[in-house]
Amino acid sequence: EVTIKANLIFANGSTQTAEFKGTFEKATSEAYAYADTLKKDNGEYTVDVADKGYTLNAKFAG
């Protein structure tokens, strides 16, 4: 089991951190699915991958 950390950075400057656990593939998929649920209210996002894929920095356009 691994933990994927998602740093969510919103256009207004606020941030949120979420963690997803499971296999690498499952946890990564859940992190992206969570970011997708936030698109409606926060706009499209881009992701910078860090820490060999164990940290995802998602920046929302607003």
Results as ranks from 00 to 15, higher is better:
Val49His: 07
Ala11Val: 09
Lys5His: 09
Gly43Arg: 01
Phe20Lys: 00
Gly13His: 06
Ala18Gly: 04
Phe60Gln: 03
Glu44Asp: 12
Ile4Cys: 03
Ser29Asn: 12
Phe10Gln: 02
Ser14Ile: 13
Thr46Lys: 09
Asp41Arg: 10
Thr55Met: 06
Ile9Arg: 08
Thr17Pro: 04
Ala6Met: 15
Glu25Trp: 09
Glu44Val: 09
Leu56Tyr: 02
Lys40Pro: 11
Leu38Tyr: 15
Glu19Ser: 11
Glu25Gly: 08
Val47Asp: 01
Leu8Arg: 02
Thr15Phe: 12
Thr3His: 05
Thr55Trp: 04
Asn12Glu: 05
Asn12Gly: 07
Gly53Val: 02
Asn57Phe: 11
Val2Asn: 03
Lys40Phe: 11
Lys5Tyr: 10
Asp51Gly: 04
Ile4Pro: 00
Thr28Gly: 01
Ala18Met: 15
Val47Cys: 06
Asn7Arg: 10
Ile4Val: 10
Glu1Gln: 13
Ser29His: 11
Glu25Val: 09
Lys39Thr: 11
Asp41Gln: 12
Ala27Pro: 00
Phe10Val: 00
Phe24Arg: 07
Lys26Ile: 11
Asp41Ala: 13
Ala6Gln: 04
Gly53His: 03
Gln16Ser: 11
Glu1Asp: 11
Asp51Asn: 07
Ala6Val: 15
Tyr34Gly: 00
Ala31Cys: 06
Leu8Thr: 02
Thr46Cys: 13
Tyr32His: 06
Thr23Ile: 07
Asn57Ser: 08
Thr15Tyr: 12
Leu38Asp: 00
Lys52Pro: 03
Asn12His: 06
Thr3Ser: 08
Thr28Ala: 06
Ile9Trp: 10
Tyr45Gln: 01
Phe10Asn: 01
Glu1Leu: 14
Lys21Val: 12
Ala31Asp: 00
Leu8Ala: 05
Ser29Pro: 02
Thr55Phe: 04
Thr55Asp: 03
Asn7Cys: 14
Asn12Ala: 05
Ala50Gln: 13
Asn42Ile: 05
Gly62Cys: 09
Gln16Ala: 12
Ala11Ile: 09
Val47Gln: 02
Asn12Leu: 05
Lys52Tyr: 14
Ser29Arg: 14
Lys21Ile: 11
Lys40Val: 11
Tyr54Gln: 06
Tyr45Val: 05
Thr46Arg: 08
Asp48Asn: 11
Glu30Val: 05
Lys21Thr: 13
Ala35Met: 15
Thr46Trp: 09
Val49Phe: 12
Ala18Ile: 15
Thr23Val: 07
Lys21Cys: 10
Glu1His: 12
Glu19Asp: 07
Val2Ala: 06
Val47Tyr: 05
Tyr34Lys: 03
Gly43Thr: 01
Thr17Val: 13
Ile9Asn: 06
Tyr32Arg: 07
Ala11Cys: 13
Ile9Val: 11
Asn12Tyr: 06
Asp36Gly: 04
Thr3Trp: 07
Lys59Thr: 14
Phe24Met: 10
Ala27Gly: 02
Asn42Leu: 09
Glu1Cys: 15
Lys21Trp: 10
Asp41Asn: 11
Thr3Arg: 07
Ile9Gly: 03
Glu30Met: 14
Thr55Cys: 06
Ala31Pro: 01
Asp41Thr: 13
Thr15Arg: 12
Lys5Thr: 15
Ala50Phe: 11
Ala58Asp: 02
Leu8Pro: 01
Asn12Met: 05
Tyr34Arg: 05
Lys39Leu: 06
Thr28Arg: 09
Val2Trp: 05
Phe20Trp: 05
Ser14Ala: 12
Asp36Phe: 04
Asn42Val: 05
Thr55Ile: 08
Asn42Gln: 13
Ala27Ile: 03
Lys21Phe: 12
Ala61Glu: 12
Ile4Asp: 00
Tyr54His: 10
Phe60Ser: 02
Glu19Lys: 09
Gly43Ile: 02
Asp51Pro: 00
Lys5Pro: 01
Ala18Val: 15
Phe60Pro: 02
Leu8Cys: 10
Asp51Ile: 01
Asn42Met: 12
Lys21Arg: 14
Thr3Met: 08
Ile4Leu: 06
Ala61Met: 14
Lys59Pro: 03
Phe60Trp: 05
Lys59Ser: 11
Ala50Ile: 12
Gly43Asn: 02
Thr55Glu: 05
Ala61Ile: 12
Glu30Thr: 06
Ala6Pro: 00
Val47Ser: 05
Thr55Val: 10
Ala11Lys: 09
Ala50Trp: 10
Thr46Val: 12
Ala11Gly: 08
Asp36Ala: 08
Tyr54Asp: 02
Ser14Pro: 07
Thr17Glu: 08
Asn57Gln: 06
Tyr54Cys: 09
Glu1Thr: 12
Lys5Asn: 06
Gly22Phe: 04
Leu56Asn: 02
Gly22Met: 02
Thr17Ser: 11
Gly22Gln: 01
Glu19Tyr: 15
Gln16Glu: 12
Gly53Phe: 03
Ala18Thr: 11
Phe60Cys: 04
Lys5Ile: 14
Glu1Ala: 10
Tyr54Val: 04
Phe60Met: 00
Glu25Pro: 06
Ile4Met: 03
Gly43Gln: 02
Ile4Ser: 00
Lys59Ala: 08
Gln16Asp: 08
Ala31Lys: 00
Gly62His: 07
Tyr45Gly: 01
Asp36Tyr: 04
Gly13Ser: 05
Leu8Asp: 00
Lys26Ser: 13
Thr28Asp: 02
Lys40His: 11
Leu56Cys: 05
Val2Ser: 05
Phe24Ile: 08
Leu38Cys: 09
Asn42Tyr: 15
Lys5Arg: 14
Ile9Ala: 06
Tyr34Pro: 01
Leu56Ile: 15
Lys26Asn: 11
Ala35Gln: 02
Lys39Gln: 07
Ala6Lys: 01
Thr37Asp: 09
Glu25His: 09
Tyr32Ile: 11
Val2His: 07
Val2Pro: 02
Thr3Val: 13
Ala11Asn: 08
Ala61Gly: 12
Ala31Met: 07
Lys59His: 14
Asn12Pro: 01
Asn12Trp: 07
Phe10Cys: 06
Val49Glu: 07
Ala35Tyr: 15
Ala61His: 13
Ser14Glu: 13
Ile4Trp: 00
Phe20Val: 01
Glu44Ser: 11
Val47Lys: 03
Ile9Leu: 11
Asn42Pro: 02
Thr15Pro: 04
Thr15Ser: 11
Lys39Asn: 03
Lys26Met: 12
Gly62Thr: 07
Ala11Tyr: 08
Gln16Asn: 08
Asp36Asn: 10
Glu44Lys: 08
Lys5Val: 14
Lys26Arg: 12
Leu56Phe: 10
Gly62Arg: 06
Asn57Ile: 14
Asp36Ser: 06
Ala11Arg: 09
Lys26Trp: 11
Lys26Thr: 12
Thr15Lys: 12
Gly13Thr: 05
Lys26Gln: 14
Phe60Asp: 00
Asn12Gln: 05
Asn42Thr: 03
Thr23Ala: 07
Ala33Pro: 00
Phe20Glu: 01
Lys59Asn: 09
Lys59Glu: 07
Thr46Glu: 10
Ala35Ile: 15
Gly22Asp: 04
Leu38Glu: 04
Ala27Thr: 03
Thr23Asn: 08
